[in-house]
C-alpha cells in the first residue's frame, strides 16, 4: 500500500508558491531520501502534509486515503510521524511528557515508553528533566522517540543530522537502519550525503520547488550531488 503520495502538488505559504508540481510516493517498507540545497522546498513537503503549507493544485494521499483538507493532525492520524527540523521539543514538558505527547494518536504497535527508553537509555535517565534541557543530540533522540510513540507506518525525518557531532550522526544512522529493518518506512530529508547513502534505497532531488531527479541509490552519482546538493 502507498503510505504517502504527492501527485503534482503545488504548495503555498499565503500567496507565495514554494512547491511546483511535486510528485513522489512512498510504499510500505521503503526508505526514500529527499535531497537538495537549503531553500529548495524540502521542508515545505513536510509542511504540506502537516497543513502548515497550503496545498493548491494536486493531490496528497495518506495511508491510501485522499486528504482533500489537511489539518495539523492529519498526518499523525494517518500513521505518518514527523521528526521536524529543529526538533520542536516542547519547553513546558519534561522528557517523559514530550514522549507521552507523541502517543496522542493511540495507534496499536510495538512502540511504548519502555521500548523508546530501551532504544535511547539516556532519555530514561533524564526523563523528569525539561525536554529543552537536553543536549542537541539528546533532543534529536527525544524527537525521534516522540515520533515513534505514535507507532507510525512512515517516519519522516527532516534534517535529523543538523547541528550534531559526527559521532552522534553515526549513532542515529544505526537507529534509522534498525527502524527500517523492523519495517518502518522512512522518508529521510537530508544534506548529509553519507547518512543518505547508509539509510535510503532510492532518492528524489529537489531544486526550485520541483523534483528534478529520482532513482535508485545506485544512480545517485557524484555529478548529481555536485550539481544539486553540494554548496
Amino acid at each position: 500500500m502507498t503510505l504517502l503520495s504527492f501527485d503534482a502538488v503545488d504548495a503555498f505559504y499565503g500567496r507565495a508558491q514554494v512547491l511546483r508540481g511535486v510528485s513522489l510516493a512512498i510504499g510500505k517498507g521503503e526508505r526514500v531520501g529527499l535531497l537538495g540545497r537549503n531553500g529548495v522546498g524540502k521542508t515545505t513537503v513536510v509542511n504540506a502534509l502537516q497543513g502548515i503549507a497550503q496545498v493548491g493544485r494536486g493531490a496528497v494521499v495518506m495511508a491510501g486515503q485522499p486528504a482533500p483538507r489537511i489539518r495539523h493532525y492529519s498526518a499523525a492520524r494517518a500513521g505518518i510521524s514527523v521528526v521536524p527540523q529543529g526538533r520542536r521539543i516542547i519547553p513546558a514538558l519534561s522528557v517523559r511528557e514530550n514522549l507521552l505527547l507523541g502517543a496522542a494518536v493511540a495507534r496499536p504497535g510495538p512502540w511504548t515508553l519502555a521500548r523508546v527508553f530501551e532504544l535511547f537509555p539516556v532519555l530514561k535517565e533524564r526523563q523528569h528533566t525539561p525536554g529543552t534541557a537536553l543536549s542537541g543530540g539528546q533532543q534529536q533522540m527525544l524527537a525521534i522517540g516522540r515520533a515513534l510513540m505514535a507507532n507510525p507506518d512512515l517516519l519522516v525525518l527532516d534534517e535529523p543530522s543538523e547541528g550534531l557531532a559526527p559521532v552522534i550522526v553515526d549513532e542515529l544512522a544505526e537507529v534509522f537502519v534498525r527502524l527500517a529493518d523492523e519495517g518502518t518506512s522512512l522518508l529521510l530529508i537530508e544534506q548529509h550525503i553519507s547518512l543518505i547513502r547508509r539509510v535510503v534505497e532510492r532518492y528524489h532531488i529537489m531544486s526550485k520547488g520541483m523534483i528534478v531527479d529520482s532513482g535508485p541509490l545506485a544512480q545517485l552519482t557524484t555529478e548529481k550531488l555536485k550539481q544539486h546538493v553540494a554548496v
Binding site: 502537516q50 489539518r71 495539523h72 493532525y73 520542536r88 513546558a92 514538558l93 511528557e97 507521552l100 496522542a104
Partner: peptide, 19 residues
Amino acid sequence: LYVRAFASDPLTTGTQGVD
C-alpha cells in the same frame, strides 16, 4: 498534558495528532 503542551507550542502539539 495536551493543554500544557498547547499553551507552550500549539503547532507542534497539533502535529502530534492532538485535535
